[in-house]
Design a protein around this nucleic acid. Structure first.
Lengths: 209, 209
DNA sequence: CAGACTGTTGACAGAGTTGTTTATAACCCC
DNA sequence: GGGGTTATAAACAACTCTGTCAACAGTCTG
């Protein structure tokens, strides 16, 4: 019986498509395990390639990590800016904005990414104005709505935005734990209620100034 | 020339002392690198022992991690409860409480630990009531101070405590990054100002109900 | 079709990590 | 002091991970 030489079929992608496949798989891993939890073999298996292929396209593990972090941060920036833009000028939609950002965080796991990067010491460059744009938009909205006598400072608005960001980013990671720990239920609905409450608190702060 | 047998001096600690030395070294590593970043050899070197000694006392790497996590969580719980107790009954000391907890987080790195545990999927049992005690104390304080007409719910107090916790825990890790990103300076003083502002916001919320 | 270019992969090397084995040294009790 | 107990560590084993190398296989151009 003559030996049948197995011809192993190989798919061949162009560089850009292969890189994207690999980056997608890497980002999945980044969300659940953080930068230090990224393994070349695991990423490669998930992307359907061998691990030397990953190294061929990205040079080294560290360069791959840098690439996926860079892409994720851009994605985060974009999502937030979009959420703000969708309800531009309507201050009463604070609840909607907060919920929208929270939902995006939930779906993409990007809040986890932000915290993981911070914990592991990676620089977080929002690739653009970052929160500054959010602060500007919020402050303009606020000035338009406030009474003449009141004179909210930009710093006050900035701190409010930072507080909202902390609540949303932190909430995405330890929100349910904290709510449960504080005697509230801690399920998904409880999170929604908390965010509604938060939005009203922020608006009340704006109105009280 | 007769061979001089080197007698290597060995210090010998009792089990409890050795465990504590090792746990201290492990906690240092836990704060900066998270549970998955703990390395037996590194911990052993820092504690001044060999890595089999660590295994002798704790059985396995995972049991060591469990032990240090358990100890850290107890310590966190204790620190917060203590900060609350120190200013019991005086609502106007909200600034002091917030700053005290923030300072403790800064010194011990325990806020980092909490987030890291959450990210890596470890259960966070406050070893006791957790935030529930804080909520109870805060709510009692609040009821005593509020007008009769106002009827703040316990849930509202709980959410306020959760918000403060999110701001403090998150702030310890990404606070300066966010402040800087929002157009504020982002140095240590800016953090203090933010927490003062936060304390006033929380009090204002209580007074407005 | 010939040949260059490049994406792809199996096999291997080297470093690092956890855990085991075995011998030694300190301490305690009789 | 003798003997048992236990803390300690050197040496080793097994495994995992990153990175290299050489060979293979699509794709495109002449």
């Amino acid at each position: 019986m003559p030996r049948v030489e197995k011809t192993k079929p190989r798919r061949r992608l162009d560089s850009a498509a292969a890189r994207e496949l690999i980056l997608d798989a890497t980002e999945k891993r980044l969300v659940v395990a953080g930068p230090s939890g990224i393994r070349l073999q695991e990423v490669a298996a998930d992307a359907g390639v061998s691990h030397p292929t990953v190294l061929h396209h990205f040079g080294s593990r560290e360069l791959l990590v840098q690439a996926v972090i860079s892409r994720s941060l851009q994605s985060i920036s974009g999502a937030i800016v979009e959420a703000i833009a969708r309800s531009q000028g309507d201050e009463t939609q604070a609840e909607a904005i907060v919920e929208s950002v929270a939902t995006t965080f939930e779906k993409t796991g990007h809040a986890r990414v932000v915290l993981w990067l911070a914990l592991e010491g990676y620089a977080i460059d929002g690739s653009g104005g970052g929160l500054k744009d959010v602060v500007e938009a919020t402050h303009a909205m606020r000035l338009a709505r406030s009474k003449k006598s009141a004179r909210p400072t930009r710093d006050d608005t900035a701190r409010t935005v930072v507080l909202a960001a902390l609540a949303l980013v932190g909430g995405a990671v330890i929100g349910s734990t904290l709510l449960q720990n504080a005697g509230l239920v801690g399920d998904a609905r409880s999170g929604v209620q908390f965010r509604k409450w938060l939005a009203r608190l922020l608006i009340a702060h704006f109105d009280a100034s």
